[in-house]
Design a protein around this nucleic acid. Sequence first.
DNA 1: CGTTAGCTTGATTTTCATCAATACTCGTGG
DNA 2: CCACGAGTATTGATGAAAATCAAGCTAACG
Lengths: 241, 241
Amino acid sequence: MGKGVCTGMNCDRTRASGANGYCFDCVVHTWAFCAALAKLETLQSVVELQSEETLFMEGDRAVSFFTVLTGALRISKLLPDGRWQITGFVLPGEFVGLSAEETYVDYAEALTDASVCRFAMSDLRRIGAEYLEMGGQLLAMTNTILTRAREHMLLLGRMKAPEKLASFLVGLLNRAEATEQPTDPLALPMSRADIANYLGLTIETVSRTFTQLRSDAIIALPEHNLVRVVDGEALAQLAEG
Amino acid sequence: MGKGVCTGMNCDRTRASGANGYCFDCVVHTWAFCAALAKLETLQSVVELQSEETLFMEGDRAVSFFTVLTGALRISKLLPDGRWQITGFVLPGEFVGLSAEETYVDYAEALTDASVCRFAMSDLRRIGAEYLEMGGQLLAMTNTILTRAREHMLLLGRMKAPEKLASFLVGLLNRAEATEQPTDPLALPMSRADIANYLGLTIETVSRTFTQLRSDAIIALPEHNLVRVVDGEALAQLAEG
DNA sequence: CGTTAGCTTGATTTTCATCAATACTCGTGG
DNA sequence: CCACGAGTATTGATGAAAATCAAGCTAACG
């Protein structure tokens, strides 16, 4: 899994939030849960991550949670024998690291160079009374994540390889659209290995399936990490099962 | 999937909560999120469900959410072509039906005859300001559900049939223990078909795997729906992967 | 006591994993 | 600028796990 480790709390690569310490000009301002809050700006700090760096590990004390500003993270769970499953990708404006436990229950690692905005759990509890609105926002966003998790279970349990890949691409397209990022050549921030793991497949099967979708003229692959949708109808069809 | 439909809101089979309308002697009082609240008792009503009855469906307006009092529910998602995936079982004291959307995003059906305690979403919003504590409880419980969902993804994506089944049994044992229900002959409230679907397998594979675990002297099956753990060590070992 | 739904067992097929090369891409240094 | 090498992706051949197809079995219920 990841190489470097930066547990947020004690990482030296932190600095004041945004360009000048205010949320209102934060890159993800309009999508992130913290958008609702003016005073929150005093509570966070920005953490810079290099590609493959670990933000937190299972078992670490869950003292912080995070909003992704730029780049992307991967969330995964590990089996004792080394097998693991990526349970989600976290894109800009989305948050990660809330846990009902004292410690984190999964791993968060940077897929690319990334920056995240750190919040202290203790601050969350403290301001709860004042900034009730945020509690609601967090609950809503957690529910959104849960909904996505359940869709992913349907994918893992019941879909065939081409359906899985189509579904994955459609999901990425939707999220890119939602955060106003380019979709025509859609960028895949993750490797084939990450895609394969996320979909419960192997690298080889993902690769074969990519070439299959390409030869069926459903997508084009101008580069390994760029996808162009040729037949959106067929892709959506596949993605639906 | 289910037969009858009872969307909670307009179900006639409702009555006042508990034996006498107070939460404090509710059967799940000590485990349910509502335990923290005294005033909540005025806000709910009890809904009785028959086995296989539907509590809510994907697309229904999400006007209520529920705590299970007795029995068990199954939560599932449906693919257009009829394939579906059970994403979770809901046991007494656990809640279900919170959604960030306007409508429910999955199906909830009774595995057995069951009773659930209904809360109105509007009440949740209204009392939010006063009963902040509950918001935190809901967030915590939602995070617990999310954690379980992620563990389930690991199971669906990376485990082999015997590991899946062992993991499922261990999970049920833990939950039965947590709510002080019998574990020695552990009752399986769900059919082989439900287990199979939940684990991303077929009925046949589950059946074969049960007989395999039995002939390996890891479990005994005094009846189809009763499991006795013979070699807990081996079972835990398998469940861990 | 027969019927039916749910479970088990067996035979065959399918999908995907595994094993094994081969090709591509990008960065480095001659 | 090109050759080399390492990491990543593709392609091919084979094998294994679980799905599918097809009977039987069991137990509960009329």
